[in-house]
Design a protein around this nucleic acid. Structure first.
Length: 290
DNA sequence: CACTTGACCTGTCCGC
DNA sequence: TGCGGACAGGTCAAGT
């Protein structure tokens, strides 16, 4: 679920809501969701002040004034939601927001000294919240291998093509999903950007022209930027730091639109399987190479 | 080495 | 209504 635009939206929300807060308690009911030694929690988390919130790829980083950080991966169904002392600071619960917290998927609760709380919810328990020294974050295996951030000036079409060409025999979809090639693309934005570039997701990289890859580079930047403007994509679980759902899927052209018309040519969108993932495409606009 | 598949979990939906 | 199986947005280990 959470791909780059969703994690970026959470990051922006947390930056407004929790910087300056002092952590007063930390509870977890599932060890894999919070795999930290109690001694580290006591020494470097309890009493610490939050001094910054960052994102790299799909990883969220909350920096503390103890030279430690909380490194968070939401994986498929993770949520990070801030709630003030009262139940619903942002208004009455409704369809665009999750309900009372904690709920049955709450795995970690951080309490602040002003009575507010930060909840880590994760239905499928794939995600985690790790406390570690800030300086060690760049040495995590994931950080050592992860590719460039797509929404920066350094992410040029030339760099994108050079990296993608390293996977000549892979499908283009598997290639752009690979975080070592570039950071942040997941299943939704893979399908959306490949539709924009008129590339069949199962085509091999070696069969795709440079001009198509230039177009794909532009589409990846476009769909991610648009999605951040819309507050991300909520398929099932995703919500932002205030518990609100995202609106990008109202603008999606293929994702979750099987059996509906292609917005470009009217052909019925097909759902299939590529790179082991559910894959949506237009069979007329996105031709299979042979 | 390049590339693909299964595992980690819970919940929901669909067919029988 | 109940039950089994497939599937769901990510990543890593282990397989070919």
């Amino acid at each position: 679920m959470p791909e780059l635009p969703e994690v970026e939206t959470v990051k922006r929300g947390l930056s407004r809501l929790v910087i300056g807060k002092i952590v007063s308690s930390a509870k977890s009911n599932w060890p894999k969701s919070f795999p930290n030694l109690q001694a580290d929690v006591d020494l470097f988390l309890i009493g610490a002040k939050i001094i910054g919130v960052r994102r790299r790829a799909k990883v969220l980083i909350i920096d503390l004034d103890t030279k430690y950080s909380l490194v968070i991966h939401l994986k498929m169904t993770g949520q990070i939601v801030y709630r003030g002392g009262e139940s619903f600071a942002a208004g009455h619960p409704n369809d665009s927001m999750i309900g009372e917290l904690p709920d049955r998927s709450t795995r970690v609760i951080l309490g602040f000294d002003d009575g507010s709380n930060l909840y880590f919810n994760d239905q499928r328990k794939f995600g985690w919240v790790r406390l570690m020294p800030t300086v060690e974050i760049p040495n995590l295996p994931f950080m050592l291998k992860v590719g460039p951030e797509p929404l920066t000036a350094e992410f040029t079409a030339k760099i994108f093509i050079n990296r993608v060409r390293k996977r000549a025999n892979s499908t283009i979809k598997a290639t752009i999903l690979d975080q070592a090639i570039l950071a942040g693309v997941g299943n939704i934005y893979a399908d959306e950007s490949l539709w924009g570039a008129k590339i069949y997701p199962g085509n091999r990289v070696r069969d795709i022209s440079d001009s198509k890859l230039i177009k794909l580079h532009k589409e990846i930047v476009y769909v991610m930027t648009l999605s951040i403007e819309k507050g991300g994509s909520t398929d099932k679980n995703y919500v932002d730091a205030e518990g609100k759902k995202g609106n990008y899927l109202e603008f999606a052209r293929v994702f979750r639109r099987e059996n509906l018309p292609c917005p470009r040519c009217g052909t019925v969108i097909v759902k299939t399987r590529v790179a082991g993932r559910g894959t949506h495409y237009c069979p007329k606009c996105q031709k299979e190479s042979r």
